[in-house]
Design a binder for these strands. Structure first.
Lengths: 152, 152
DNA sequence: TCCATATGGTCAAGGGGATTGACGATGACG
DNA sequence: CGTCATCGTCAATCCCCTTGACCATATGGA
């Protein structure tokens, strides 16, 4: 297969879009709340860190604290996230995932996994493992501190 | 390497972001106009098709004709795109790339190519070829008619 | 200890890029 | 021809993010 120089980033964007659409369709089919990717990345962040603040989240997402604050506000209202007083800083509020939030993460992981399975069926599981490794290598080489948000 | 189920879409988003940032940095370094991905996808579309209309473009990008119209307006103003009377439909205007537009496409292809080269150096050129094939397979399996625009 | 400065969070205003809705002009087809 | 679809534009609005200002609390040096 002759590869067109410079085409891979475009393909990656399309592939990402396809997998996100796929996830979206599954979530919609089962009636789950349709959260945006920003919400998903927020969950993922809160899973790893305890007593994270809104500013921490904003840094992680690569957005302003005001934007992050609004996301947190929504997620709290919808029952996915809690804000409790911060244990050591009385200015701050410590963020946490509710059971509902944790359940959503697990469900989304499972559904993304199914999307991966479909791709694996297409190209073979070993190839998918390789892609995983290669993507990790690329991300690591960029320092791993890339905000997950696509630029658009 | 143990792969976390459901993580590939996230990695793909980050990888895409990294490659776009890379391209962006290169374009900025050489003083080129900083066009958004939507503009790039517009160019790519206009390269393939002759006498395309704004509505055709909107369909391709998966946005409304009003939004597409605005993009075309900008690109015309900046000298990348022309709007001439449509040969067979007097309601419509046929879009085309100016030499400046074509040059931008070639330049962007080259710079994306360099980004690919850096990745190839990291994981090996043969692996990159495989990824290309696999991404093509995924995109084809979705009908190839996926709007390039990421959902966010 | 006190004060200067840095930082977490919120409120308010504004902007970029999309959407919906309405419309005039032309095309397509019975 | 008359009806209905389609290309393009104008206008209003929306969503999500940004910038800027501000208060309350932390922090660290004199």
């Amino acid at each position: 297969m002759t590869r067109i120089r410079g085409e891979i980033p475009l393909l990656m964007a399309m592939a990402y879009r396809i997998m996100i659409d796929d996830l979206h369709a599954q979530l919609e089919a089962e009636g789950s709340d349709l959260l945006r990717p920003a919400h998903g990345y927020t969950f993922k962040f809160l899973l790893d860190r305890d007593d994270a603040t809104t500013v921490d989240l904003a840094d992680h997402l690569g957005i302003t604290k005001q934007a992050a604050s609004k996301i947190v506000e929504e997620l709290e209202e919808w029952g996915y996230v809690t804000r409790r007083p911060h244990p050591t800083d009385r200015r701050a509020r410590a963020l946490g995932l509710t059971p509902k939030g944790q359940a959503y993460v697990e469900r989304a992981n499972e559904l993304r996994g199914r999307t991966e399975d479909r791709w694996a069926a297409l190209i073979g599981p070993d190839r998918l493992d390789q892609i995983y490794e290669d993507l990790c290598a690329l991300v690591d080489s960029a320092g791993g501190r890339t905000p997950p948000r696509p630029v658009w």
